[in-house]
Amino acid sequence: MTRYALGVEYDGSDFLGWQRLSKPGESDAGSLQAALEEALSFVAAASIQSVCAGRTDAGVHAACQVVHFDSPADRDPRGWMLGTTSRLPDAICVRWCVPVADDFHARFSARARRYRYRLLNRPVRPALQRQYLAWERRRLDAEAMHRAAQALLGEHDFSAFRTVHCQAPHARRDLQRLDVHRDGEEVIFEVQANAFLHHMVRNLVGTLLEVGRGDRPEAWVGEVLHGRDRTLAGATAPAGGLVFVGPLYPPQWGLPSEATLSDPEEAAPAP
């Protein structure tokens, strides 16, 4: 039995999220996990179950979702990558496959996860790339949003930014980066944390938009954080602008550079 790690890219527009909606072996046309497992099972000629680094919601995309699975099938990494991709819908592909140690875990071995949110900021909605962009017609102050976002960095209780349906046992997360910048007509949010709560990134973006529009002062964002009340924060931003850039792991696992931490201090186990 060999454990493999995969880097999976997908357009989540037509899926109901990552998580399988049915039991393994049952028909499931709505989830990304089911599509991947069916393709892997075809290549392995046996049932395969997978574990991902972080479940994404309906409509959310991924540049490099990391998944692990176990199989006794004698296939080389290239065979897993190309064979699986050939059985997947056009909206999903396996970018790489790496054999890993038996104690590697796509979720629990990750030290950080990264998201990017792109928002088109102009009077007219997008036509091109509309499935990958959110849209805001009012002019946004990206610099004010960036300044306000810095009050959220560090380890905090992020109850104000989790959905009421979030199943996480607690809301403490370490937000390591939240940068906001403008690139022409786009406003881009770069977010990194040790882990995320359900809808956390979209709720952070929706709250910062209140500042960007000039409806709230910059200091209000910190007040929302410390209030720990979801009803005080901004609306949940649309899913379409969100991409799961991917998780980061310590170098010991031998994954490609895009999934590996470059800072030795970040690679150390959490206390």
Rank of each mutant, 00 (worst) to 15 (best):
A73P: 05
D70L: 15
R87I: 02
W80V: 02
D90M: 00
S71L: 11
P77V: 11
G83S: 08
M81I: 10
F69L: 13
R78T: 13
V67K: 10
W80A: 01
R95A: 01
C93Q: 08
P72K: 10
F69Q: 06
W96N: 06
F69C: 09
D70W: 14
R78E: 15
F69E: 06
V94P: 01
R78W: 12
F69R: 03
V98N: 06
T85E: 09
V66L: 15
G79F: 07
D76Y: 02
S86W: 04
D74Q: 14
I92D: 02
C93V: 03
L82K: 15
S71G: 06
S86R: 13
I92W: 05
G79C: 11
L88A: 05
D74G: 05
P77Y: 10
H68N: 15
D76V: 01
M81K: 11
R78A: 15
T85I: 08
V98F: 03
G79S: 14
R87V: 01
D90P: 01
D74A: 15
T84Q: 02
T85D: 03
C93H: 07
T85G: 03
C93G: 01
A73F: 01
T85S: 12
L88E: 09
M81C: 14
S86V: 01
T85P: 05
C97R: 03
P77A: 09
R75E: 13
V94R: 04
T84K: 10
T84G: 10
I92M: 08
V67Q: 06
C93K: 01
D74Y: 05
V66P: 05
A73I: 04
G79R: 12
P72H: 00
H68A: 10
V67N: 07
D76P: 03
C97T: 02
A73E: 09
T85W: 08
R78N: 11
G83N: 08
T84R: 02
V98E: 11
R78F: 11
D90I: 00
G79I: 06
A73C: 09
P89R: 08
R75V: 12
S71Q: 10
G79V: 01
R95Q: 06
R87G: 00
R87E: 11
R87D: 00
V94N: 04
R95K: 02
D90F: 09
L82M: 14
V67E: 09
D74T: 13
R95S: 02
T85K: 10
S86Q: 11
R87N: 04
A91R: 09
V67W: 12
R95V: 05
F69T: 07
G79L: 11
D74K: 13
D70P: 06
A73L: 11
W96Q: 03
A91D: 12
D74R: 13
C97D: 00
L82F: 15
M81L: 14
S86F: 04
W80H: 05
D74H: 12
G79K: 10
L88W: 03
L82I: 07
W80S: 04
